[in-house]
Computed example of a mutant assay.
Amino acid sequence: MRIFNGFDELKAAVGTEVGVSDWIEITQERINKFADATCDEQWIHVDQERARAEMPGGKTIAHGLLSLSMAPMFIREVMGLKGLKNTLNYGADRIRYLAPVPSGSRLRGRVGIAEAEEVPPNGLRVSYRLVIEIDGGQRPACVAELIALHYR
């Protein structure tokens, strides 16, 4: 884990990769819970029997938003910022889902800092570049630019 000792250190890291998280398994149970929470119970996510018969690879696939929802965990795992009061999710840009995530796959996040700009009062708006990789995959599951507001 990389620890930043304030906004200046974070701003100095613009254009660099911060780190890569550990792998996390995307189980069918996790997919089902996400489907329940979001009311997105499309068969490609939850119907294992139909997926065996009709899906390439014979498995259900995770929701793209499930992969993206793991972003805060990936970022917290690879970095810390000292002296914060709080952090707010400011949004996301340029989100692309490049490969399906079959149930049982493992994902990890590759985190970089794309931009950092001080904002009043006493804040720093940071754009994080996130690449969510699939273990053994040729293409990432997702690439996104996530924006956070950090306040000290």
Rank of each mutant, 00 (worst) to 15 (best):
C39R: 15
H150Y: 15
S69R: 05
V131L: 06
R110G: 03
E49W: 01
D135A: 12
I31E: 13
I147G: 06
K59Y: 08
Q28K: 09
G109C: 02
G137I: 10
L130P: 08
F34A: 11
A13M: 05
K59S: 05
D8V: 06
E145I: 03
S67N: 11
R152A: 15
F4V: 02
A92T: 05
P140N: 13
V78P: 09
L149H: 12
A53Q: 13
A144K: 04
G6I: 04
E25W: 05
G64N: 10
E145M: 01
T60L: 04
F34Q: 13
C39G: 13
N89C: 03
M79A: 15
L124D: 06
I75A: 04
K59R: 13
R152Q: 15
A99Q: 12
N89L: 05
I3N: 01
E133N: 14
R129V: 00
G137V: 00
L98Y: 03
T27H: 12
H63P: 00
L66G: 00
E118N: 08
A144W: 08
F4T: 07
P121D: 08
A51G: 09
R108C: 11
R94Q: 11
W43M: 06
M73L: 06
E54N: 12
E9C: 08
H150P: 06
E77L: 03
V143A: 10
E29H: 12
L146R: 07
R110P: 02
R125M: 14
E54V: 09
D47V: 01
V101H: 12
R52D: 02
A71F: 10
L107K: 04
V18C: 13
V78R: 09
A62I: 02
I132Q: 15
R125S: 02
A12T: 01
P121K: 12
K33V: 13
N5S: 07
A144V: 08
A116V: 02
M70W: 11
I147V: 14
D8Q: 10
G83R: 06
I3V: 07
R139P: 01
P56F: 11
P56E: 12
D135V: 02
D36A: 14
L10T: 09
A51H: 08
E145H: 06
L84N: 04
M79W: 00
R125L: 13
T87Y: 03
E9L: 09
Y128G: 01
Y128C: 07
E118Y: 04
S69K: 10
L146W: 10
N32F: 11
P56Q: 12
N86R: 10
F34I: 08
S127I: 07
